[in-house]
Design a protein around this nucleic acid. Structure first.
Lengths: 159, 159
DNA sequence: CCTTGACCTCAACCTTAGTTGAGGTTTTAC
DNA sequence: GTAAAACCTCAACTAAGGTTGAGGTCAAGG
């Protein structure tokens, strides 16, 4: 590692990996999927601008909230291309992310209320239990089954 | 469908599917994985006891909270085998599920606080931002990357 | 009886979010 | 100047949570 003024040079993938805590293979993956970008050295090695640290941080945080990568990508695509994003850019993005978070918390709280009801009535039965046919959405929620809640469009259910 | 006293006969897979809102293929899957069980008719068709409705309901609710199926299975394994579970059995299970839920809500609230801090300071940077090195756990949480937080054991990281 | 819809099994496929390994090149350090 | 560590690409694999389809059987109504 070239010892420099520390804080100015572009990052190799190993450095970005160490500082972000994300495995190099995952960074490759993010790059393949357009979540991060890099320049290349004359020898074809990746060099990341320091703003990528923030980008990866944002990805991490968003994932923690349960947002799928393609949605995170969409969000990141709203950052300016060409110039390094400013504080304002990031702040806007974070605010968006925060409302996702708010929505998820609210959804979970609803869910808990419903569960309380179920325990209260001792049921957890299908009829009369809102948990079974929830009106609220858990948003982009988690890794559950693909089509539990949406009950397709109209017409013939479950062909 | 044989019209009976409605509420007494065992359920075919189609009936269970309709009443629970879970696709037959998913019910097969749950059965293969020991989450639900069935008897068979002389002609090898599945017949589900009515308590399976409740079981499937429990699975659905738990998944909505983000618990992976194998953990749900473990929870269900604590139900009595042989006899139909009583209200008390279910109530206990629901209470367990509720504390999972509480934990997740709390974790998300922490996360939101941190994000507020980040917006406040305009950073979302790596150093000094707890979101990057969170001390709280999201539990069984979501579909994120496999090994972000745990930073394996000791010794050589990322071999 | 016989047709039609519901059901059976088994194998293959899908998506998300990566990891692992082979085979080869670049950088860095001594 | 050379050896080791880091990096490159590409393909194949993993895991969860299912879906889809082929090929065949069961059951209920007319």
């Amino acid at each position: 590692m070239p010892h420099q003024a520390a804080g100015t040079h572009a990052l190799s993938i190993g450095e970005l990996s160490q500082r972000s805590g994300v495995a190099p293979s995952a960074l490759h993956f993010y790059e393949r999927n357009g979540l991060i970008t890099s320049e290349r050295t004359s020898g074809n090695q990746r060099r990341y601008g320091r703003d990528m640290l923030r980008r990866v941080a944002f990805i991490r945080v968003s994932q923690r909230v349960g947002i799928p990568l393609k949605d995170i990508r969409t969000a990141l695509d709203s950052l300016p291309e060409g110039r390094t994003p400013t504080k304002r850019d990031w702040s806007r993005l974070s605010r968006l992310s925060r409302s996702e978070l708010d929505a998820r918390i609210e959804a979970l709280q609803h869910l808990r209320q419903d569960l309380d009801g179920c325990i209260g009535c001792g049921c957890l039965s299908l009829k009369a239990c809102r948990l079974q046919n929830p009106s609220d959405e858990l948003g982009a929620g988690g890794s559950g089954p693909r089509r539990w809640e949406p009950a397709p469009a109209a017409g013939n259910p479950r062909t």
